[in-house]
């Protein structure tokens, strides 16, 4: 068994702007949020200035349950950073309580061999540089 691990946060940097700040500020507090159009109420990800359906700029930031489902995944041989070499698991996760919009993330915890399309996952948090946190996902056993 090879346990799926998070990437080392000290190598991960993000930049933030007006559109994306609410997502990352909430993430700092370990809350997963997504932008929902203030007019037509449809979700979108990543955060953008306009609703692609109705072109509205109005946004409601909705706190989500953190539950997700693996839409696709890959197992990469080694991290793209200097240091320890270990396999890790990038995933595209769909968020059922946000119209199925998707996040690009990692699965951590559990055996890498168990990762599959359709796997139920729940959000966890990986501290990175400058005090930010990025959402990652653990297997959700329904407990």
């Amino acid at each position: 068994m090879t346990t799926a691990r998070a990437l080392p946060g000290e190598h991960i940097h993000i930049a933030v702007n007006e559109q994306t700040a609410p997502f990352w500020e909430a993430a700092k507090e370990e809350r997963l949020v997504a932008p929902r159009c203030g007019d037509c109420a449809r979700f979108r990800m990543p955060p953008t200035p306009f609703c692609p359906h109705c072109q509205s700029k109005a946004i409601d930031w909705v706190e989500l349950s953190g539950k997700g489902e693996v839409f696709s995944y890959t197992v990469c041989l080694k991290p793209p950073f200097p240091g320890e070499v270990f396999p890790f698991v990038p995933v595209v996760v769909s968020l059922p309580d946000a119209d199925g919009v998707r996040l690009i993330s990692n699965v951590v915890g559990g055996d890498i061999a168990d990762v599959h399309v359709g796997m139920k996952v729940k959000v966890a948090w990986n501290p990175i540089t400058d005090g930010w946190k990025v959402p990652i996902f653990e297997p959700d056993h329904g407990d």
């Binding site: 990437l7 930049a15 994306t20 990543p46 990469c76 890790f88 990038p90 990692n106 990986n126 990175i128």
Partner: peptide, 14 residues
């Protein structure tokens, strides 16, 4: 790092 790739880069897809 750019705001747009903050939703991609942290996953480690090199």
């Amino acid at each position: 790092p750019k705001p747009e790739n903050a939703f991609l880069q942290p996953a480690g897809l090199a």
